[in-house]
Design a protein around this nucleic acid. Structure first.
Lengths: 240, 240
DNA sequence: CGGAAGGTTGAGGAACCTCAAGCATGGTGG
DNA sequence: CCACCATGCTTGAGGTTCCTCAACCTTCCG
């Protein structure tokens, strides 16, 4: 895990802003820009318009845990107390809406609109807690990759397409960040990605571009599905 | 971890109910009563009035993870999709308010009132994710015990009282449940509690009654605080 | 071409899990 | 009242998984 690196706001550069229909301010951030740090005073909340943001917490000895990965509509910066409970940093060029806390406190309509999103994030955290508490390292890595294939592997998954069940995407996290998200070390993540590559589950082009030729096979490695039953009953797959 | 035990609704007994000011129904549950199961249809949400509720998710092979421990005001049963993402079971005799989903959807004022609570639970999950991803087993157990001393160990902790810095409480979870909450096995939890006992950090009366004579010492074992600085700078403490 | 940043690979060890046995506690029935 | 059983907890020995430490590789960029 990452130790004793405290990101500073000067790492990235804030990029622009504009007022938006009185209910917030639109902010533009470059990739790898710190939006706020754990312990900062929490005067406003943010919603991602587009791009990607990671939230992380640091223990005092430098251990880091990424607690949420957010894309469009993701809410962050909400604090029950006076201070931010985690830091927020962009992964990509990102636009956010910044809303004053007391604005939200005074607008039930706004609160309601945000409520549904909050619930979605709560359930995503339930799933992540399950991953961290009860999944093996190979299952964690497979689950992480499945995040990038959002229409698959959940309630309403259409199952594999005949013939061509592939997906490709770009990893937006560095190995260290993947490790800090999955509660592993960078070496373990690297070894397991190599293992997936060697076994032909994924192909990689450079460090970021991933191609999955058989999504269903990857999905069977996540631990969230019985390896018999459902779509994939025919082929049983090794866990490593 | 618990394997292949599927709690049935018949385990516990629903105990009574009453309508409450038109905005919900008050339900009474005995200890160890299943309120709903993972996968049940989600027509309503619940708020704890008093008592205690645990939420847990099961992986298909029987691994279990407790995702939230709720007491008064805790919200649960919110689902972004049609089905419950986790099961809910009482730990103690518990009163809950049950609210229809569409009632909440139609009442911004209600949604706003619940929003603040939702945010508090989101932050609690951030902390729990950090525990599961980055803390050692001894740190997890110490952190778990500190949950029962709510006014200590957080922002605004008054520090140790002179002379007498003790606390006592009753564990509401079985060893297996503690293990499933902390992402450990029952044996590890047992060994670490024994170790805390042997070292004089806690005393136990039976399996449930806990006495902590030096709260600050326990707190220094959680990993969330620097072991030097703050109140407790004088005494450095072993990690095990 | 050289350096920096990020990633991979290997050897060895620590932490935690698994399996197996034995110990408390509390309730039940003879 | 006490034997008996069930449930839950503790303890120990041994094994697996993942981490640590260290070296080396790859890519990018000036």
């Amino acid at each position: 895990m990452l130790r004793s690196r405290q990101a500073s706001s000067a790492d990235g550069v804030f990029d622009g802003s504009a007022d938006v229909h009185g209910s917030g301010r639109e902010l533009h951030f470059r990739p790898r820009t710190v939006i706020f740090l754990q312990g900062d005073e929490a005067r406003s909340i943010f919603q991602v318009i587009d791009g990607a943001v990671m939230l992380y917490r640091l223990l005092p000895d430098g251990r880091r845990q990424l607690v949420e990965l957010l894309t469009a509509n993701g809410l962050f910066g909400w604090a029950p107390l006076r201070y931010r409970d985690c830091a927020a940093e962009t992964l990509l060029a990102t636009r956010c809406l910044e809303l004053d806390r007391d604005l939200v406190d005074r607008s039930p309509a706004l609160a309601q609109r945000l409520g549904a999103q909050l619930v979605a994030q709560l359930c995503a955290l339930h799933e992540h807690v399950t991953l961290l508490g009860r999944k093996s390292a190979p299952e964690r890595v497979a689950s992480f990759l499945m995040r990038y294939i959002p229409d698959r592997g959940h309630e309403g998954c259409p199952g594999p397409r005949d013939g061509d069940d592939c997906a490709h995407f770009r990893l937006t996290l560095l190995r260290q960040e993947i490790a800090d998200y999955l509660g592993l070390t960078i070496e373990t993540v690297s070894r397991l990605l190599t293992s997936l590559k060697r076994r032909g589950v994924v192909r990689m082009d450079g460090l970021e571009e991933m191609v999955v030729d058989d999504v269903c096979r990857l999905c069977r490695l996540t631990g969230t599905h019985l390896n018999l039953g459902q779509w994939c009953s025919a082929h049983t797959d090794e866990a490593r």
